[in-house]
Design a binder for these strands. Structure first.
Lengths: 248, 248
DNA sequence: CTTGACCTTGACGCGACGTCAACGTTTTTC
DNA sequence: GAAAAACGTTGACGTCGCGTCAAGGTCAAG
């Protein structure tokens, strides 16, 4: 047989056959006088074996290992391992599809999507914040945390925020407070200390950051850089207040 | 933030961030005086978005399309499409795992494995043929057909062979016949015509190939090349007999 | 003699980065 | 204050299983 016939017989392309030769998976056969490869039935048997194994999902390297091992012992191990791997992949797929179904079932898909269901419930508690406003920025920030923060941080975060999101009085105070902060323009506005105090009052004592380190970290800096000077002043003042009463 | 901090925040590597820059997925930020990239919170938001989408299984190109489309319209389409794709993958995985479970549940895994269940049942009907013998070669040949033959060919083939495999009398005749053929050494052995006739008798009339074309094809040639001269003579004689009575 | 279907080797392309090289900068440690 | 560790920069090659040219040579049919 020539290479095209062999390939057709095994259901692969000629390129694949040559690839297997290149990898040493399938030995190079004799050549005819014209330079064409001349295959025998045994080559077809070998090739079919390679194809069956690779179709199962083994990498070509694994196929070579199995073939080199005279079959039997290793094959069983490799297949069992492969099955475990496929099971893992199946679980992953299911998780992703569940996530997708979750997303698709929601009534809206905004720029902040897709995020986790918990975070979404938090967002719906404070719907449609003014664009470019401080609250919108905090939502963005939360979305960032939602994608990559360590699990324990997320849990702690949700423990703090979830009760607040369920409390209509708190929501009203948040909306009021943030709209006042959005209105700030002068970094020396006399209302700043009061706003900082109101901000702190939103959090139960003993909860949240206890010192100003987080503000000096690169993340804190990035957050402050994103605000107007007046807004940043509120945040900084709030942390000053926090430090003052912290040790107590 | 510097690139490492941004990457850590979004849970990706710095290499990935630079890759997104290269693809135009994430805009290059300003540089600091030392040449370092300087990121803001908005970059983190963008990056988190990219990561969420790509983690769902979208290609980076699709991510770019979704991001370019101002979210909303396209996102829903793409996600639905993605879900269909994932469903397909899940089915594939299940099929492969079923195949694997089939293979692993068998009591033996020989060099001819893994093959389809139907073919395996056929092989167990004629267990342990003499190594290098004609019967072993035909098993190899069948294994090749099993991997890649068109479905209709396989169905026809099994329709012929399955009843034979279930008939103990036929099995006995096959074993006897093939051991006699294995014993042949002389291409002019006077037993050859008789053996050819016995071979033909195994197949019900009207079943199987009706002319010698298959023998002159590259596959037939490869098959004959694999046999001893005497064995090939039997096959050729059988096809001669077939042609003689064929038209009738 | 041409056409078309095969064959040959060699090389680049894909996708989403990992990894190394070769170098400059900043921070930490002794 | 110097050295080391830990960052940053660009550039380029490697991964995996082939697909897909490029630039030819071979062969049977019309």
């Amino acid at each position: 047989m020539r290479i095209g016939e062999l390939a057709a017989l095994a259901g692969v392309t000629t390129r694949a056959v040559r690839h297997y030769h290149h990898l040493g998976l399938l030995p190079e056969p004799e050549r005819r006088a014209n330079g064409y490869r001349h295959y025998t039935l045994r080559d077809a048997v070998e090739l079919a074996r390679i194809r069956r194994l690779s179709e199962l999902g083994l990498s070509l390297e694994e196929v070579r290992d199995v073939l080199a091992d005279d079959y039997g012992r290793e094959l069983r191990e490799v297949l069992a391992e492969l099955d475990a791997d496929l099971a893992r992949q199946e679980d992953e797929l299911k998780e992703r599809r569940a996530h997708l179904a979750e997303l698709l079932s929601r009534d809206y898909l905004s720029a902040d999507e897709p995020i986790s269901p918990v975070m979404a419930s938090l967002f719906t508690a404070l719907p449609n914040p003014p664009k470019g406003g401080l609250l919108a920025k905090e939502r963005d920030w939360l979305a960032v945390l939602d994608t990559a923060a360590p699990v324990d941080v997320k849990i702690e975060l949700m423990a703090v925020l979830s009760p607040m999101a369920l409390d209509h009085a708190v929501i009203a105070r948040v909306n009021d407070l943030y709209s006042r902060m959005d209105a700030l323009t002068d970094p020396a506005d006399p209302a700043i200390p009061e706003l900082a105090e109101r901000l702190l009052e939103l959090f139960p004592p003993g909860i949240g950051p206890t010192d100003g380190d987080v503000l000096r970290s690169p993340f804190g800096q990035a957050f402050l850089d994103d605000l107007t000077e007046a807004q940043a002043a509120v945040i900084r003042h709030a942390f000053t207040l926090l430090r003052e009463r912290g040790p107590e």
